[in-house]
Design a protein around this nucleic acid. Structure first.
Lengths: 187, 187
DNA sequence: TTCATGTGTTCAGGATATAGAACGTTCTTA
DNA sequence: TAAGAACGTTCTATATCCTGAACACATGAA
């Protein structure tokens, strides 16, 4: 289904979190209300804890199951991206300039977008969960989300669930310029 | 620590996913290589499956543990936020204007930021995992990430892992204006 | 009706996780 | 040195999960 099923190493992940928070196995066990032996064996992958058991262990850090199983992203390398080197994604009437080079494994995507007058984009229905937001820098935008229409000017912004059908249009005579962000990356 | 620990209902979640994919308990059990009794009891929350057991069940859908435990966000309400109604978060020399009213349960946060000359902000060490990105609209910014310093002008952008220590400073004589996004929300 | 097939649930026994107490090691401090 | 405390690991009885086989109910066909 979704890519990247590099089945998580529960033991290693627990150990990593515990140590990052400066806790010993016994300290964590005490805070969580479980035995230190359990923590030890879970970390060594000698046993596979029940979901409720793992939840209890994590409560001592504290961490939620969602956070525990959230994909771990490799650290970012390049920090600053000059205006000239922003990667051009679109072409023609719409220009998407992406902040960041390789978004593989990232949870955030930011774009510097330019729409020529009359340019339209958008998606009918969406694949995966996510959110997107944007803020208008220059020009006028006509936004349609889930059937409703809005006209936005400089300083105005939007925020919605990516699964809703949506469309963007340059509603003015000059170029439309905006900064958008979405999670997770859609390209 | 982080808010929103509405402990997930494992049984209900599994049942929801199974039915959404048009599978009976037995069909799922067969594909996953477990007994139908297990699926039944897990869905009824009569037992709390081991992590490995749950992983095996999910392999029949298929679903990863990450996807299974991913927070389900309530649908967004308001879509458009006028420049005048963007919620002001900071004060004084730095103004943060947040896109979106209530970010509880959201994974994305976007800010329209203004720094007066000399204004500084940033964090030494970070609590939780996440990423942040930004794009300069006006003015000059001095960015420090993990010890390295960069000067950015209009159109320039940044992207880094939130856990790295970082600081922002208005390095010019005029106001600094930028759009930033981070995940997950830090306020 | 009667049979066949589908659904989800419940039961008893073998497999596995967990608690509590022991173990061996590595420090620090006297 | 030795004593003490902290660390992670290992042992054994008990609690829990998980299977394979029944169970009860619904639907559709003959």
């Amino acid at each position: 289904m979704n890519a990247s099923h590099f089945d998580i190493d529960v033991g290693a992940r627990l150990r990593e979190l515990r140590i990052r928070h400066g806790l010993s196995q016994r300290a964590l066990a005490k805070r969580a209300g479980v035995s230190n032996a359990t923590v030890s064996m879970v970390e060594a992958n000698r046993i596979s804890p029940s979901v409720s058991g793992l939840r209890q262990i994590l409560s001592g850090i504290p961490y939620s199951l969602s956070e525990f199983f959230a994909e771990t992203h490799p650290p970012a390398e390049q920090v600053v991206f000059r205006a000239a080197e922003l990667k051009e994604i679109g072409g023609g009437k719409i220009s998407y300039r992406q902040v960041g080079a390789n978004l593989e494994g990232r949870s955030l995507q930011m774009l510097h977008e330019r729409y020529k007058p009359g340019a339209v984009s958008g998606k009918a229905m969406l694949s995966h969960q996510g959110e997107e937001a944007g803020l208008i820098i220059r020009g006028r935008m006509l936004l349609e989300v889930d059937g409703a229409r809005y006209e936005l000017g400089p300083g105005d912004a939007y925020f919605f669930d990516s699964r809703k059908p949506h469309a963007f249009r340059n509603a003015g005579e000059e170029d439309l310029e905006l900064v958008s962000a979405c999670t997770p990356p859609s390209f």
